[in-house]
Simulated scan of single mutants.
Amino acid sequence: MPAPPAPVPPSPAPLSPVVLSLNIARKTVPVDYAQRGLTAIDKRPVGGPLKVSPPGPKGEGGSGIQGDVIGDWNNHGGDYQAVYGYAREDLDWWQGELGVDLHEGQFGENLTTRGVDQTQARIGERWRVGTALLQVTGPRIPCRTFAGFLGQRGWVKRFTQAARPGAYFKVVEAGVIAGGDEITVVHRPDHDVTVGMCFRALLTEPDLLPHLLTAGDDLPPEERDTVLRRGAIQLDA
């Protein structure tokens, strides 16, 4: 009589979304590849908890994370880019592509996450992280500072083609965040405009630009202005 088949072990339970690491830069560093000659892209893990709050308009307010500094206030920071997140899963993918080790914070992100797909997050999606409430506002657009910091030839083009941009957030409710905090998606809008779609529309697929407007008030003013300017779209008065 044949032996009974061996029992199939149960599949491991999916990991709960979590902040793997909270990362900040405590000072700017002079470099020759940054537009203003200064950068704070080299974020490093800290234990926290740190306060998270709305920093104010771009150009006047910097990072939304307590103690974090920004080198170029005109192009980074402000209420709609108060916090930048990047997934550990995407860092791992890049490790395989580049053949180098990438630590948490290496892409300049404040929140290195695990267990949540930031590219598929919808614009306007709200996350409870620690005691703070964050709202997804859009993708990170690569720049020469990012390329210079990583030292990868053709990096802007390569990052654009990969379309794994990470997500920017605004702070809806101030609070504190620490590494290890769970992430709970508490609101997901009805529209289908994701971080990935917004990234492709702005950089590689301009035919998608008009569709970004279906995100309504969830679309930040800067992206909305870009759509109207580049798409030559006229809205009804």
Rank of each mutant, 00 (worst) to 15 (best):
T119K: 14
Y80A: 02
E109H: 13
D68R: 11
G78N: 04
N110A: 08
L102A: 07
E89G: 13
W93G: 00
H76T: 00
A87E: 12
W93H: 13
R144K: 11
I70S: 04
N110H: 10
W94I: 07
Q81I: 02
R114T: 10
S63M: 08
V136A: 15
G96D: 13
F146T: 03
L98Y: 10
I65A: 13
Q152R: 14
V156R: 14
L133Y: 02
D72A: 12
R126V: 15
C143K: 04
Q120R: 13
I141F: 06
Q135S: 13
E104R: 01
P139I: 03
T113S: 13
S63C: 10
R144T: 14
Y86M: 13
L91H: 04
I70Y: 09
L98H: 09
G108V: 10
N75G: 12
Q66S: 10
D101M: 01
I70A: 04
R88F: 09
G85N: 05
R126S: 07
G99H: 04
W93C: 00
T145N: 06
R153W: 04
G105P: 09
R122T: 03
G151Y: 10
K157R: 14
C143E: 01
L134I: 11
P142R: 01
R153G: 00
Q135Y: 01
E125W: 06
G85L: 07
T131S: 15
D68Y: 12
A82F: 08
A121T: 03
Q81N: 12
L91Y: 14
T137N: 11
G96A: 06
G154D: 10
P142H: 05
D101Q: 11
Y84R: 01
V100I: 15
A147C: 05
G105F: 10
E89A: 15
E125K: 04
A132V: 11
L98S: 09
Q81W: 07
G67S: 08
A121G: 05
L134A: 09
D68N: 11
D79L: 02
D79R: 00
N110P: 12
P142T: 02
G108A: 10
N110L: 07
N75E: 10
S63L: 11
E97Y: 11
W155C: 06
G62Y: 04
W94T: 08
R158A: 14
R114E: 14
N110I: 10
G151I: 09
N75D: 05
G148N: 11
Q95G: 15
G154F: 09
N75A: 13
V136Y: 04
I123G: 08
L133T: 12
T137K: 05
Y80V: 10
V100C: 04
P139L: 06
L98K: 07
Q66D: 15
G154N: 07
T119E: 12
V136S: 09
L133W: 03
G99T: 02
D68S: 10
W155A: 15
Y84H: 14
Q135L: 01
G105L: 06
F149M: 11
